[in-house]
Computed example of a mutant assay.
Amino acid sequence: MSSQPNAPHEPPGFELPLRLLLGFRVLVDDLHAELARQGHPQVRPMHGFVLQAIGPDGTTAAELGRRLGVSKQAAGKTVDTLERLGYVRRGTDPQDGRRKVVRLTDRGVDCLALSARVFEELRAGWARTLGPERLRELESDLRKVTPAEFFPLDVPGWFGG
């Protein structure tokens, strides 16, 4: 008996990317529900990408846009929101007074640290549901089919087209 790509026991090919995206969505939605409970109710998924892209040393709006795969203006608009919420601050680059640098505030650093802890808790929940060994196998399998380098932060721009 030959195996057909869409045999009755096999899911259609389009289901795989949708299930992977849905798994990502479940984790991110659960993260944001917990962030809201712990004092960060206005943080949105895009904000996490931005805070990560700013990093510990800060960055300019132009560089932030490049890292995120969005325009400098789009990055600046998100920085405006995060600044209003107290997660980032703009300042002058001490090396070059003409450059404006965006840096994380203590609240921004706290949000990233809390996110890391919550992701650990969410992973533990998946381990309880799937079993620790099966989760490790799933993660190992995903590493086999994805690039080895760290996850790119340009997902917002990639989704935006």
Results as ranks from 00 to 15, higher is better:
Val102Pro: 01
Gln73Tyr: 04
Arg117Cys: 04
Pro152Met: 11
Glu34Gly: 01
Arg99Glu: 11
Gly13Met: 12
Val101Ser: 07
Tyr87Ala: 07
Arg136Ala: 15
Val101Tyr: 11
Glu63Val: 14
Gly76Ile: 06
Ala53Phe: 06
Leu135Glu: 04
Ala148Phe: 09
Val50Ile: 01
Asp57Asn: 13
Asp154Ser: 11
Val79Thr: 06
Leu21Pro: 01
Phe14Pro: 00
Leu31Glu: 11
Met1Trp: 05
Arg84Cys: 03
Arg25Asp: 13
Arg143Gly: 08
Leu85Ser: 07
Phe14Cys: 07
Asp110Met: 03
Glu149Gly: 07
Val145Gln: 12
Leu35Ala: 05
Trp126Phe: 15
Pro56Val: 10
Phe151Val: 11
Pro5Arg: 12
Gly125Thr: 03
Ala61Asn: 13
Arg99Met: 10
Trp158Met: 12
Gly48Gln: 03
Thr81Pro: 03
Gln38Val: 05
Glu120Tyr: 06
Leu31Trp: 01
Arg128Phe: 05
Gly157Trp: 04
Arg107Lys: 15
Ser71Met: 02
Gly97Lys: 13
Glu83Thr: 09
Arg123Met: 10
Phe119Ile: 08
Arg37Trp: 02
Val118His: 10
Val102Thr: 06
Met1Lys: 06
Val145Arg: 11
Gly86Ile: 08
Val145Leu: 14
Leu130Met: 13
Leu104Phe: 03
Arg117Asp: 10
Gly97Met: 08
Glu83His: 02
Arg98Lys: 12
Gly69Arg: 07
Val118Met: 08
Pro12Trp: 05
Arg134Cys: 00
His32Ile: 05
Pro41Phe: 05
Phe119Pro: 00
Arg99Ala: 14
Pro132Gln: 13
Arg117Gln: 15
Leu27Ala: 15
Gly76Asp: 00
Pro45Val: 05
Gln42Ala: 10
Val109Ala: 14
Leu51His: 00
Cys111Tyr: 01
Glu149Phe: 13
Val28Pro: 00
Pro41Leu: 06
Tyr87Gln: 04
Leu31Asp: 02
Val50Tyr: 02
Pro132Met: 04
His32Arg: 11
Phe151Leu: 15
Gly76Trp: 05
Glu34Cys: 11
Val118Glu: 03
Leu27Cys: 12
Arg44Glu: 14
Ala61Arg: 12
Gln52Phe: 01
Leu85Cys: 06
Pro17Val: 09
Arg103Cys: 14
Ser2Gln: 06
Leu64Pro: 02
Pro152Trp: 05
Thr129Arg: 15
Glu15Leu: 14
Ser140Met: 12
Cys111Ser: 06
Asp57Glu: 15
Pro132Glu: 15
Ala36Met: 05
Gly65Ser: 07
Val118Ser: 06
Val118Gly: 02
Pro94Ser: 11
Gln95Pro: 00
Ala116Tyr: 06
Pro17Asn: 04
Glu120Trp: 02
Leu142Glu: 03
Gly131Asp: 09
